[in-house]
Structures are given as C-alpha cells and as structure tokens.
Design a protein around this nucleic acid. Structure first.
Lengths: 317, 317
DNA sequence: CTGATTGCGGCCAGGAACTGGCCTAAAGGA
DNA sequence: TCCTTTAGGCCAGTTCCTGGCCGCAATCAG
C-alpha cells in the first residue's frame, strides 16, 4: 500500500477513537511497529493531536486539534448528516445558519455515491413539511443542485411557476442563492429574457443541469441580496405579538424557547414575539396554560376568539 | 511539503468542486504539472472519481464515487453539521435516526478544536428546547461525552437526579446509549452499587470523564435495550387524539404534516394523532382555523376549553 | 480544416524519502 | 520491582517520488 493511502487509513482507524495499541495498528496496516511510529509522527507533523499512553494497556488516540482533520464517515453517518443539514437549511435549527448548512450539504451530497443519495431521498419524504415560523419547506435536491451550479458556473434548465401563472420553462445562468426572511431565492440571468431575475425556490419545480459552463456575469449593483430585496414587493405579513401572562417567568421562558422575549415579574409576565404566523403564539398559550391578556395584535385576539367560540359550541362529538 | 500532506490539500481543493485547471492546481501545490498528473492518478487509484476535461477550458473535477471520501470541512461547515445533528439526535428530523446522528455527532465534535466547540456551545443555547412530539431535549454535550465514553470504555462520574430525590453523585462504567420512545437512556454499571443501572439522560446534570479505562463487562441478558425496557415502569402518557374538522382534506393534511393521519371526505375530515403532548393538536386547530369537534381525548377538550374561557374573560389589555 | 490548449502517460535519471532492524530511554501498570 | 509499551536516534538498503522530456488524444476557437 501507498504511504498516503496508509496515512488515510490510519487516520480513519484513529477516528473510531478508542485507544489503539500500537501493535494492532501496525498489524492492520501491515507495516512494522517502527514504521507505525513514524506514521504517527507524520500525522503529528501535519497538525493532528495524537495522544499516546505508555505502559501496559497503552495505545494511541486522536484528540481534537488545532485544525479540523478530514472526516472519514460511515455511510449511515453521512446520511444522518445530510438529513440533519436539510432541516438546518430550512431554518429548522438556528436562524442565520442556512447558508452554511447548504454549503456543507452540497459538499456532503456531492461526494455521496448514488446509493447513498437514494437513501437520503427516501428519508427526505419522511421528513415533515412543517417548518418553524412558517414558510414552505424547500426541496433539498433543488437547493443542493442549484448551490452546486452556482459554484461551478453551470447553466441549468428549470420549471418555474410564478404566482397565478402556468409553469414555464426557463434556461438560466445561476448566480447566487439568497435567503431572506425564511425564504430561499435564486438570483440568475435568464437566457431567454436576457435579463436578471430572482426565483423563489419553493416555486421551482424541477432542475436539470446542462453541463454547460458559462462565463460569470457581473450582477447589476453587485449585490445579490439587494437585488432580491428590490424585487420583492409585498413582504410577508409580520406581527408584533404582546401578551401578558399570569405565570412565572421561568414557566414562560420554558414555553417560548427562543421564539420571543420574556420580561416583567412573576405573576405579570410580558411576552413579546415577532413572527409571521400566528399559530405559534397559540401554541405557547396552550403550553403555559394560564390566564393571559392579549395586548396585540388584534388578529391574534380574533384567532383565539374563533377557537374559543368553536370549542364551546359543539358539546363534544 | 510532504506527499501525504499535498494529497490531502489536493483533495481539499477538489472538494470545492468547481473545475480546476491543471495549471492552477500545480501552482497552488507548488509542484510541476507532471507531478500533479501523478497525484491525480494516485487519487484515482485510491478510488476517487476524478473527472477530467481536455481541451481549452479543461480541468479536473471530483465526482461522487463508489465510496465516501473523507470530508474536508471548513470550520463554519463543521459547526453547521454539529448543530444540525443535535436536532436530529433529539428526534427533530426523522425518527429512528437518532443513534446514527449521535454517532456522527460524536465524531465531528470529537475532532473539533476547542474554539469550534465553543462556537457550537454558543449556538446551542440559541437552539430551542421545544422538541417535536414532546419529551425533554437532551444536552448534546452530555450525549456526545457519554457516547464517546461508551466507545472508549472510559468510566465517568455523573450527577443524577432521580425523580423526587436529591441529586446524587455516581461513578459508573458506561455501557451503551439507548433511545426509547423519544427518550435517551444510559445503561451503565454503577461502581458503588455494584450493579447495572439505567439513567435517563435528561436527568443527568453533569458528566466528568475520568480518563480511567475499564474492562467491559457482559450485560445481563446481553441486550441493553431490553434492560432499559424492563426497568421502565410508567411509560409517558400518550394521547389518542380524534378530531372532526369542517374543512377540506387538503387543508387538513397541510396543517398536520406527518404528525397525524387524515381521513374522511371534504367537509367532514377525521384527524387522528398519537402523541404525548396536547399542545400540538391545539396548534393544528389554530392552523386550520375551521369548525371542529373534539372526539377524544377529554383532556384536549378541557385544554381548549380553558383557553377559550381565558380568551373571553379579559376584554383585552 | 487548422492550430492552440489541455490532459494522458511512457521513459529516464537523480535524489529524496521511506522502510525495517537495532539500540537505549522513559513512562505507566501490576 | 518487573514487564509492557511508546519514543526516537542511527544505519543501510531500497523504494518511490520528482521534474523534464516526449508523442498522443481530445476539445475548442477561428
């Protein structure tokens, strides 16, 4: 075996992380113990922190180091990562991480052999479509394909359904993906219309890569985010929710998580949230299960009112 | 630079995935074009599918291959993966993937340099604690530390708070992590009590690794899952929710996602869910915003009733 | 069609790097 | 205390890597 290949295998073995006795490692790699020691040395020179314990039951162990070593993943682990990143890309975890999540997802998916991709696809259909804070979930396949095309300067064909229109076929040069207010947009140069357009990803049906590369153009204004913002007329309705709760601050905080801020004192807690779907405050009210006063918005009062009216009307089925 | 190090760098460059002209690669790696070609060859021999395009504007590109190559991640990407996997480990994405997610998470976290771990920790606090389908969220630090200790046969000290008792200090030999009904359990041999115990992870306060390795014991019965099951007396309360909705099937399906099943015809839709927190059906009712009849459980009727009573009482702030 | 560009790979000679074996030292566990 | 295991210097033999040269093939622009 090659030295480089052996180093990779050694790294892979060490990543399973249990202590490895030197003898076992040198056996597996089919080299002498002396060469193994040299290999360990080489890893250390590359910046990997390899711990060693001497004496009986001693051995080697990979420790977290200064830089991130290459990850050697089992198939299942890679699938798990892909699934987790899909959630994150749709804003499921922490806001503001969507871009990086897509970047990582593209990398993982791009390296996956087809059989693993199929597995991810199969699992994807099981994933829920209910996304935190509203906004339709974006198909991860569309997302990664476009991210890849943007990076590689590869033109694509896609079907797009503008609101209230029939689906159209577009041939575009993808420029950049932009996330704005829990929605994904593709900024691209439309080849047929000879102009820049932005496409909402949840309105894109299918994406086919062409394999054709193009010379990247300069976007007018130079800022893809600004371009998208200028094109959006009606931003989704946002509500400023203010509710007073007759409970303890701790209980209120537990109920809202980080979806809002809690202030005031026990027994008179002020809960403030800013979001574009009113279902979540209702969930919080059900969770705290205490007396409350809705200060704003009126829409929330009406929603809860309707719920109340409906709950009281039928005397149960 | 070393050959192994160069190969790793080359792989890293190729993973950014855009076409690389050979000249640029050889420049960056500071070798002759001939050596670059040989490096590419070496990669191919290792099983990597490196595409090449000839002619003007030709170059190299890494394609998905038969096996999963080592992932070379940027710092930010690794953080994104860790955050995504935390969600998945807590059952946020697809049920049944928790184990693998923890496995992958342990690997990623274990390789992270401290500064990245701090970043993940910082982001973790922003993550919501509201977990789908109920059940308390488990601290990812506890999860990964224990997973690592199980693999490395390393004994740990932990503080455990049994229900209705004061926190106690335990010295245990961790054996296996088990996920059961959206909860995590640690199966371990308690050194002080000289017997096997299972610990619910959300009741574990702090975990300190000792660095001491132990000889793994045989678990009685040989099955950690069975051991946990036998020890659980009271399973968490589960509710069978049945609600009739005066809306269309499509609207009902959109509202529940995969958290329940929808049957019946438009105008008389039967919604069935099985879960252990009643907040979610309330959310669904707010989402569909239509007339409904709660058939079961009575607790849900009462919850909505309380909500209604409270909504109607104060005439708004 | 022609020429330019780029990847492919054989060949070769010099040299760098790797290997295995030997040695002693140091550290940890029983 | 003794045994085991890692650490690392030294050395000789050999492998492997490198850069430069070559002709060849594929692709694209003019």
């Amino acid at each position: 075996m090659n030295t480089s290949a052996r180093m990779l295998r050694l790294l892979s073995l060490l990543q399973t992380h249990r202590y490895w006795p030197g003898g076992e490692l040198s056996d597996r790699l089919e080299v002498s113990p002396r060469t193994l020691r040299r290999d360990i040395d080489r890893l250390r020179e590359l910046g990997y922190a390899v711990d060693a314990v001497r004496g009986t039951a001693g051995g080697y162990q990979l420790r977290a180091g200064g830089s991130l070593p290459p990850l050697l993943l089992e198939d299942e682990e890679a699938v798990a990562i892909a699934v987790g990143l899909q959630q994150a890309a749709n804003g499921g975890a922490v806001a503001g991480m969507e871009d990086t999540s897509v970047q990582a997802l593209t990398k993982v998916i791009g390296l996956m052999p087809p059989r693993l991709r199929r597995k991810v696809d199969a699992l994807r259909s099981q994933t829920d479509n209910l996304v935190w804070g509203g906004g339709p979930a974006v198909d991860a396949g569309v997302l990664t394909t476009l991210a890849q095309a943007c990076r590689d300067d590869e033109s694509v064909h896609l079907t797009y359904t503008a609101p209230g229109a029939t689906p159209t076929e577009r041939r575009v040069e993808p420029h950049r993906l932009v996330t704005l207010g829990r929605r994904w947009y593709l900024v691209a140069h439309d080849r047929d219309r000879q102009d820049w357009r932005s496409f909402r990803l949840d309105r894109i049906g299918e994406v086919r890569t062409t394999g054709q590369r193009f010379r990247p153009r300069e976007i007018p204004g130079g800022d893809a985010l600004a371009f998208v913002q200028s094109g959006i007329r009606s931003r989704p309705q946002r509500y400023d929710v203010r509710v007073r709760l007759d409970t303890s601050r701790a209980a209120a905080e537990r109920a809202v998580g980080h979806w809002g801020t809690v202030s005031g004192r026990d027994g008179d807690v002020l809960l403030e949230m800013n979001l574009d779907h009113l279902q979540w405050p209702v969930l919080v009210l059900a969770e705290v299960d205490c007396d409350f006063t809705i200060e704003s918005p009126p829409e929330l009062r009406e929603l809860v009112g309707r719920l109340a009216a409906r709950a009281s009307r039928p005397a149960a089925g």
